[in-house]
């Protein structure tokens, strides 16, 4: 018989087990610091994206898509959890404390994730941009010399493949779905495009990661690869990124994760997701 959704979820949850045990003694301090930064940025990206996904729970355009976006949210949160746990093991902290215990300006997610949920086209456009970028980033980590990360990335990539397929179907459906869906999609892409490369913001200590073979290619190179791929797909759908509707500022990786002040949408989100955690100091939930 076919597994029920609940059974499938159980299987999927156990597909991303706790972090493989590792010894940090072999890592120099600069490498360790840079690795911590890499893990934190990736975990924060997945954590914040998971929140925007679960905002559709109960109100998605169709029940089928409601269930699908909840699965996406659970996957992203699962990835965030395993990355936070790896970071906690690296730095001697606690995954929940890292996820919920930082001040609002302490999060390192990319600017692409600073926009509020907005409409369905916006969610599709952002997810598609993020998923395609994430696929490039994960590709550069799959042969990471840091074995526990390579192992976790292999598992994450298996799930992300399905996310990308799902988003690709929606991108094409909206692009070819008539006047209104197309206009909404193009508006969303125009708004998001300046932040399209923000997942590849240069990392502090990136050189150390490259030299140690933890990261396969420089972020700048990954950004170029992503830009070429995304532009080609969108051009194939007749969505011009230069000279068409989707222009605006050219995308840049500079300050992709650094802001003078947190975005308003993230302030709101932070207030929500830390509300219970902050309500009782030191309590176990």
């Amino acid at each position: 018989m076919t597994a029920t959704p609940a059974e499938r979820r159980v299987t999927r949850a156990s597909a991303v087990p706790d972090v493989p045990a590792f010894d940090t003694a072999g890592l120099d301090a600069p490498v360790r610091e840079a690795l911590a930064e890499l893990l934190l940025t990736m975990a924060d990206d997945e954590f914040v994206l998971g929140f925007w996904d679960s905002e559709w729970t109960g109100i998605a355009p169709m029940l089928e898509e409601d269930v699908a976006f909840s699965s996406l949210a659970q996957d992203e949160l699962g990835h965030a959890r395993v990355l936070y746990e790896m970071l906690a093991q690296l730095t001697g902290g606690d995954a929940d404390a890292i996820a919920f215990g930082r001040p609002v300006d302490g999060y390192r997610h990319c600017r692409l994730l600073d926009h509020p949920r907005t409409d369905w086209a916006f969610s599709v456009a952002r997810r598609w941009l993020y998923d395609t970028a994430d696929a490039v980033r994960l590709g550069a980590l799959r042969r990471s010399s840091f074995a526990p990360l390579a192992e976790v990335v292999a598992k994450i990539r298996r799930e992300e493949t399905y996310h990308l397929m799902h988003m690709d179907v929606w991108l094409r459906r909206l692009a070819g779905g008539g006047e209104e869906p197309r206009r909404r999609l193009e508006d969303a892409l125009a708004k998001l495009w300046p932040d399209a490369l923000s997942p590849f913001a240069p990392l502090a200590g990136e050189h150390a990661l490259l030299e140690a073979g933890i990261l396969g290619q420089p972020m700048a190179e990954l950004a170029e690869r992503h830009l070429a791929q995304a532009t080609a797909t969108l051009a194939g759908l007749g969505i011009a990124l230069a000279g068409g509707r989707v222009t605006g500022s050219p995308p840049s990786t500079v300050d992709g994760r650094d802001r003078a002040v947190p975005a308003e949408s993230f302030r709101w989100l932070w207030n929500e997701f830390t509300m219970v955690h902050r309500s009782e100091e030191g309590a176990t939930w």
Partner: peptide
């Protein structure tokens, strides 16, 4: 649904998200 956002730990958030997803699935 609003408590999915406010769940205080990673484990609770995962569990609550899955639970509410089940309810939507039941409606379907």
């Amino acid at each position: 649904r609003e408590w999915i956002m406010r769940a205080p730990t990673l484990k609770r958030k995962l569990a609550l998200t899955a639970k509410v997803q089940d309810e939507v699935g039941h409606a379907q």
